[in-house]
Every structure is written in C-alpha cells, then in structure tokens.
Write a protein that binds this DNA or RNA. Structure first.
Length: 665
DNA sequence: TTTAGGG
DNA sequence: CCCTAAA
C-alpha cells in the first residue's frame, strides 16, 4: 500500500475500461490474412529467407564458430555467378551470419531482353505491386505461379526454394537472360549495381537465436513511363518494372549474444559487423537516441508454438517498463520500422538514374540515390518526376523454430500493415516536413532553384487500419498494441491523379497544394481506449495508430539532426491528466520515471519527459485564467489538485532539502 | 539514463 | 515537444 502524503489528497480510481478486443484489431490473426492473394511476393522473399535460414543454421552447427568463411552456400552462389551461371534471381547467403543476403537481381539493362526476361523480372514486379498497388497482385501472382509450378524448374538451384515451392526461373528463361547478366559483370559493373553485393567480409558473425529479417529496400515503385501515381491504386503496367535494377535485399541477422551463449565462444561481434549491419544499427541508434521510439504498429500472431509468449522489445528500458512481459522465448519478438517513412528525394533535375549502387548506401542517411526529378519550367510550373519509392526497412525477428510459412506471413504482414491502409504523402523541404498544406510551393521555396535538391516526398501509412495488432502465441500474452503517433500525413486526393499526364507523374502545383487535407484533422479524432490495471496503470490505445514512418532525410547525413521529425502532438486526455495528477500527488514532482512507471507504464508514447512537461504545463494552466486555456478543457477540480500538489511538493522539496521522500513501501 | 529547465 | 546540461 502506498503511503500517501498527509495532505488529504483523496485516492481516486481510474475507471477500468477494457482494452479493445483483439478481434477488432485488423489482422488480429494471420491465420486468415486478408491479403492472402498478395502473399506471393513475400512468399518469394520468405522462401529465400527460409532457405538462408536453413543454410546458416546448418552451417553454424557444422562449422561452429569458425568464422572468416563464407557460407558454402554463398560460395557456390558467388562461384556460379563468376561463371555466369547464376540465374537472374539470386539468393546469397553470407555465412556466419550476421547478414545473409538474398537478392533479387533483375536488372535488365538491355531493352533487347527477351520477353521471357521481362517475365522473369516479374519477380520484382510482384514485390512492387504488393507494396502499393493491390490490384496488380493477382496478375503477378499468376506469373510467379507459372514459374514456380513449371516443370522446367532447375532443381539444382536450390537456394531459391523452400519446402513448398521452388522459386526459380526456367532454364530457357535463365539462359536468355544470362548473357546480359554475364556481360554486366564482366564489364566491371559492380555486382551491387545489379542489386547483388558480393561480400568480401571475412568477419565472424554469430548466430542469433531469433533471426532478424532485414528488408532493406524491397521495392521500388516506378512512376515513370507507363506507371501512374501509386496513390491512385491504378494498375501498374508490368513491363515498366523490368527496366530498373532494384536493390532487393533480405538480410538475416543473428544475434551475437545468443550465439555466444550457445557456443561459449566470444567474438567481437559488433566490430565485425558487415557494413549493412553497421548501417542498420546506426539508423536504429539514431532513431532511438532521438526517442524515435518506433512503437510497433503490429504484432504478429504466430502459428508455431502456442506456449510461446510475446515479448516486445520496446526499448532499452524494457526491463523496467515491461513488468509483465513474457520471459518466454518469443516467436516474434520485435519488430521495428526503422525508417518509418518512405522518402523520395529530388535531384534537382540532375541525373536521377543513379539507383543506389550499394545496399549500404541505400540505407544511408544520405539519400543521394535520387528517385525523383524536379524541374522548374518557364511556365512557372514545377514538374515532379518521381521515379521510385522505397519501402522502408523492416526488421523482423523470429526464432529459429519459426516456420517458413510464419516467416512469410510475418514479412507480408509487416509490409501490409505498413502499406495496407494506403499511404499518405508528405512533402519535405530540407528534410523537414512542410506541414502547412495551404501555402504555395513558391512560399515554401520548393520552386527555388537552390531548393531543387532539397525536396523530398514521404510515404506514410495512411489509414486507420495501418497498424494492426498482431502478436504471436497465446493471445492473452499479447500486450497492448503500442500506441503510435497520429499521422500527420496528408491525404492526396485523386485529383492529383487527374492532374497527371498519362504517362508520367507530373503534379501540378495547384493540385498538389489544394488537394491536401488539413493535417490537423487526424489528431483530434484519435480514439483512445483506456485501460487500467489494479495499479491504476493507464494506457491509451489509439485505434488510429498510424505512426508515420521515419523520415529518411534527403540531405547530407551531417545534417541529420535537421531531419529528425518531430513527434506528432498528442494532447493529454483528461483521463491521462487525472492519472498524472494522481501519480504526482503520491510521488512528487521529482520522480518522473516513477510516475511514468506507475501511471503510464504501458503508454509508450508518453515518456517521463513528456509527463514532466505535461505537469509543467498543467501547473501553468492552473494558474492562468480559464479563458486563456486552450485545448481540451481540464476540469477545474483537477487543476486545483495540480496546484495543491505542486505547492505541497515544492514546499516539501524545500523542507527536505532536496531529499527524495520515500513514499513507497 | 534521469532530472531539470530552457526553447 | 524538443534539446541538453548535469547528475
């Protein structure tokens, strides 16, 4: 029992309210995914993933930790590639796994590629279509199925198959493309230029129990040529996808610690991380260090083990903030969107064909691999040519015991969760979001020559259902879906589509500006479910959990700080204020972490700094006249308590001479 | 990492 | 909300 200060504050109980039933959460269970028909592309990915997983596992067991070796699998692929025998669809495993890569290599540079080559490239098309355009998937799926089910499958290319199906290209298709591929390599083109990055790493890597699936840039959405705006969900002409090399990368990352634990071997794993990982990690660090808490938008329901609970890794202080989180091994332990936005940068009308030459670069803050053109014409119109969007990096962690099928579903769900609700578009200038929809491009400076290369577009999850809560294992173990920021995304009307010329994305200024909705309309209608536990822990679970994807700055990484997006404003509800007041009454004003733990333990979007700030504003609010207050009115009764507690604790603090009163039992 | 305050 | 010095 909490010993309360004796100034007569009454105890109140936050009325318990039920958490929104899981059944109402979209995609609450992936057994029956709503987009089954769209699983195809991700099944491809997952097939690769599954195979790589197998490979790395078997290798790990056989080779122990004798690192410094590429996986035999990798060797074989590399070797085949040197011999020009690699099919255009390439999977590659880098052993010891910190980062096994699988790459769809579909760069068909030559327009002379046979139609079969184009069909071949449909592998990528599927990915892209799935990403944004739902209507295309069935068509692409047929293509894939045709390949997969073909009798001509080359069984020896086992690195792209799983137990269920082969994802391989028929030989005749392969051969017809072979010359192109081979030539490409022999001409000194970097393998990475085709999305294939040959690892020269001789690093040691350990295997992590839960494999983390890292999809860096699974898709590029081509808006050139025949393709129209992805926002309008129109059919994508498939052929247009085949002309661009993509960097589709699957990276498996293993956990050093777990591996070491299992093997009793110590390596300097971090130091040996491949660049991809360093980059991954750096992004993550940057984001987390900025409190860019990537609250998961979804949890995954798994299928493999019912006795496995869920242990979301919310952040470093999870041990403190996750009192009840399962200690079980987890099927899907963590999912984070590191890049929570899809960014397109303009290149100021300069060359925009420079698809990133390396997966690393693609991850970098420096988004110099421009994918959009911007041109100011003499008629004072600004023409935007958006070449591609990139799907943000996803991190998915699954245990080794996860089935390939579950991995597939996980990948699919992650992507669908991110994009399934549609996307909104933000406009970035100098990396900062232009929030005012009602100012002109001229006012923003977009049309200024010097800003041509400072413009970017951001894709953001756009719908109410963009963040389904999915978790693995026993449903009761699933923690509350993490509340996320309300979108500040702006809805693009179809009017933009209408404004588009038939074969290229040209957004006319007027439409761009005027068709956007007001960005503030979202935060106000956020619906929150409030739950309390026996300890008056209050959690708000916005049903509209559509936190924008992280913004990838368009500028130089040295200016990264300029591009950190501000968190979406989330006004405190009266209930939250009540809980805060309650906690402060008991704990005082100098123990915000305790306040957080007591009353907002599950509200990950409220940091102790937030609570402290809110208290500060509450005190201020209580002091000013009611007519000066803004926002949702706080009951005067609460404000009175704020003032009382503030006065009490100020006095108390003074008397205690800074000593923190020990009120807890 | 937390606290405390200014911006 | 952000940033950050200071503890």
């Amino acid at each position: 029992m909490v010993k309360r200060p004796d100034y007569g504050f009454r105890v109140f109980q936050v009325p318990p309210t039920a958490r929104r039933p899981r059944s109402t959460r979209r995609w609450g269970h992936s057994e029956k995914s709503p987009e089954d028909g769209q699983a195809c592309a991700f099944e491809l990915l997952a097939s690769l993933a599954g195979k790589l997983l197998q490979e790395s596992e078997s290798s790990a067991s056989s080779n122990a930790i004798e690192g410094n070796h590429h996986h035999a699998f990798s060797h074989s692929v590399v070797e085949k590639e040197r011999q020009g025998e690699v099919s255009p669809l390439i999977a590659k495993g880098v052993h010891n796994g910190s980062c096994a890569e699988s790459i769809f290599m579909t760069k068909m540079e030559s327009e002379k590629s046979s139609q079969k080559c184009l069909e071949h490239a449909e592998t990528d098309c599927v990915l892209e279509c799935v990403s944004v355009n739902n209507s295309c998937i069935s068509e692409c799926r047929e293509k894939i199925d045709a390949h997969v089910n073909s009798k001509d499958l080359r069984l020896e290319n086992k690195f792209v198959h799983n137990s269920n199906r082969l994802v391989e290209i028929p030989e005749d298709v392969r051969e017809s493309c072979d010359a192109n591929i081979k030539n490409g390599f022999r001409q000194g083109q970097e393998a990475s230029n085709s999305g294939f990055k040959e690892s020269t790493s001789d690093d040691k890597f350990s295997l992590k129990d839960p494999l983390e699936l890292c999809i860096n840039s699974p898709a590029l959405i081509d808006l050139n040529g025949d393709v129209r705006s992805p926002f309008c969900r129109e059919l994508f002409p498939k052929a247009s996808f085949s002309r661009h090399g993509n960097n589709n990368r699957l990276g498996f990352r293993d956990d050093d610690e777990n591996f070491l634990r299992r093997n009793g071997v110590r390596t300097k794993s971090k130091a040996f991380r491949p660049p991809q990982h360093i980059a991954c990690r750096r992004i993550r660090q940057m984001l987390t260090s900025k409190h860019r808490k990537v609250t998961p938008n979804l949890k995954y329901y798994g299928h493999s083990r019912t006795d496995e609970g869920v242990k979301p890794l919310y952040r470093k202080r999870k041990t403190c903030y996750s009192f009840e989180r399962s200690r079980h091994s987890t099927l899907f332990k963590r999912r984070k969107f590191f890049r929570r936005s899809i960014v397109i940068t303009s290149d100021g009308g300069l060359s925009s064909d420079s698809v990133s030459n390396s997966p690393i670069k693609g991850m970098d803050v420096d988004n110099s691999n421009s994918s959009a053109k911007l041109h100011v014409s003499k008629d004072s119109h600004v023409k935007f040519s958006i070449k591609s969007f990139r799907i943000p990096q996803l991190y998915i962690e699954v245990p080794r015991t996860a089935t390939v099928g579950s991995l597939k579903r996980t990948v699919k769900e992650a992507l669908m969760a991110m994009l399934g609700g549609g996307v909104h578009v933000g406009v970035l200038l100098h990396g900062k979001k232009v929030r005012d929809d009602n100012i002109t491009l001229r006012q923003t400076g977009v049309s200024c020559e010097e800003n041509l290369n400072k413009l970017g577009f951001v894709l953001e999850p756009g719908s109410l259902q963009a963040s389904p809560a999915v978790c693995v294992g026993e449903p009761s173990r699933c923690k509350t879906s993490q509340p996320t920021r309300s979108p500040e995304a702006h809805v693009l009307d179809s009017g933009i589509t209408d404004a588009l010329p038939d074969s290229s994305l040209l957004i006319k200024t007027g439409n761009l500006v005027e068709s956007n909705h007001d960005s503030t309309s979202f935060s106000t209608d956020t619906i929150s479910d409030k739950i309390t536990t026996n300890d008056r822990v209050l959690v708000t679970v916005p049903t509209r959990s559509t936190e924008p994807l992280a913004v990838v700055p368009a500028g130089q990484k040295t200016r990264y700080s300029e591009f950190v997006q501000r968190r979406t404003r989330r006004p405190f509800s009266v209930s939250e204020v009540e809980a805060l007041v309650e906690a402060v009454e008991e704990l005082g004003t100098g123990r915000w972490r305790d306040v957080k733990l007591r009353a907002f333990e599950n509200a990950d979007h409220r940091t102790y700094v937030d609570l402290k700030d809110k208290w500060k504003t509450l005190v201020h609010t209580a002091k000013i006249g009611p007519q000066q207050r803004r926002g949702e009115p706080v009951p005067q009764e609460l404000l009175d308590r704020v003032l009382a507690a503030h006065a009490y604790w100020s006095n108390h603090q003074a008397k205690q001479h800074g000593k923190v009163p020990k009120l807890e039992p």
